[in-house]
Amino acid sequence: MEPPIYYKRSEYIETDTGNKVSRRATIAGPQNIILGGKTIIANGAIIRGDLRRTGPGHAVVISLGRYCLIGVDCVMRPPYKTYRGNFNYYPMKIGDHVHIGSNTVVEAAQIGNYVEIGKNCVIGKFTIIKDCAKIADGTIIPPNTVVPALSLFAGSPGRFVEDLPESTQEMVEAQTKQYYTRFQPEADAR
């Protein structure tokens, strides 16, 4: 097992369900954001829950599953478009075990389970990423792309590179769980 990643206890807020949210992350409209539990939101991340769908009642803007990681300086914002002449932002749904690398901008409509997104990526508006897909570092995915399950995408614009092995699901699951356990507060003693 790899060595633990330590963080300062004062820098993160831990919820009852095990979410760890950095105090230095910018979270707008938190009432519209759902975190599944054991999700880590790193320093400098920006999550825009304020860009909600108009209309009455409660609107979920961004929902994240379990064991997710939003890397350092990531931007997560819901996509927008006009539909039948009305402008609206649309909700963003992210599954379980999704890791998003640092400095990535995500405007996807849907991200499945067990997805890995590298650092410095741009995920365009209304992109759909299916289960177990992987996006390499520095990829730029244009708007409205669909990334199929078990595929690796890379480049600018992001293109299909290869199929991933069927064991991806187990690998990513183990990896994300391990990352969560490795992510520990610094020992208080000293």
Partner: peptide
């Protein structure tokens, strides 16, 4: 234009 209009209405509610 619609985007700006929307933001004009929504942003002040949360920021």
């Amino acid at each position: 234009r619609k985007h700006a209009e929307y933001l004009k209405e929504m942003l002040p509610k949360f920021n």
